[in-house]
């Protein structure tokens, strides 16, 4: 018998990323954990089919997506929180123009935030953060969360979503512009006024 090329340890290293990925879509730790367990088990059993052509993580996420899809198929009552592969025709061109003038200068530039990390200790900040993140158009939010919450690399996200590299940079730039503006208006400016 040949030795399994994927050791338990190697698979386990990917567990946190897989878990966050599943959690984002399933919004339930138990379901997410089950899906990850099944994924690692399948990966272990079919490690021969992993040719190393794509990255290991990409391959694992591919399996995980199937597990999550299986779950939604089984449970007819639940509606998936988001199908990460669904692509919607979103405003793509108008968006960035709102932030800049035609000569490329800021329309109204980012102002200074004083000691922003102090906000981490405040419960209210996280509510505002969540609102701002959810205010991103769905596709943009997915790309942003895969990068910043789940921790995938840019090329993994492009492959996962079927996005060109050029589009990825555009989407992330816009996501950051929007999120920044929302946090400034809803948190950092309103904080200033209270003082």
């Amino acid at each position: 018998m040949t030795k399994n090329p994927l050791s338990e340890r190697i698979l386990a290293e990917h567990r946190p990323v897989l878990f966050r990925y599943a959690l984002l879509q399933m919004r339930d730790a138990e379901l997410a954990d089950d899906a990850v367990q099944e994924t690692l088990l399948s990966a272990w059993q079919s490690s021969a089919s992993f040719a190393g052509k794509a990255g290991l993580r990409t391959w694992l996420i591919g399996i995980l997506k199937h597990k999550i899809a299986d779950h939604w198929r089984r449970s007819t009552n639940d509606v998936p929180f988001s199908d990460i592969n669904q692509f919607d025709a979103e405003d793509t061109d108008m968006d960035e123009d709102a932030f800049f003038m035609s000569n490329g200068h800021w329309n109204s530039g980012p102002s200074t935030w004083n000691d922003p990390e102090a906000a981490f200790k405040q419960q209210e900040f996280w509510a505002v953060y969540e609102v701002c993140q959810n205010n991103l158009p769905p596709k943009m939010a997915k790309v942003f969360m895969l990068r910043e919450l789940v921790g995938l690399e840019a090329d993994e996200i492009c492959q996962e979503i079927g996005l060109s590299e050029a589009n990825y940079w555009v989407v992330m730039h816009r996501a950051r512009l929007r999120l920044r503006e929302c946090l400034e208006i809803r948190w950092f400016h309103s904080q200033k006024q209270e003082k």
Binding site: A29, F120, Y129, L179
Partner: peptide
């Protein structure tokens, strides 16, 4: 642009923390 740079770094930290909070809120299992 200096503020933008600082604030994007801040947002990265915030997003990571938000992710961790999310795991905790749902009851971290892994």
């Amino acid at each position: 642009c200096r503020n933008f740079q600082l604030q994007t770094q801040f947002m990265r930290k915030a997003a990571r923390r938000f992710g961790t909070n999310l795991e905790n809120r749902f009851g971290k299992k892994s």
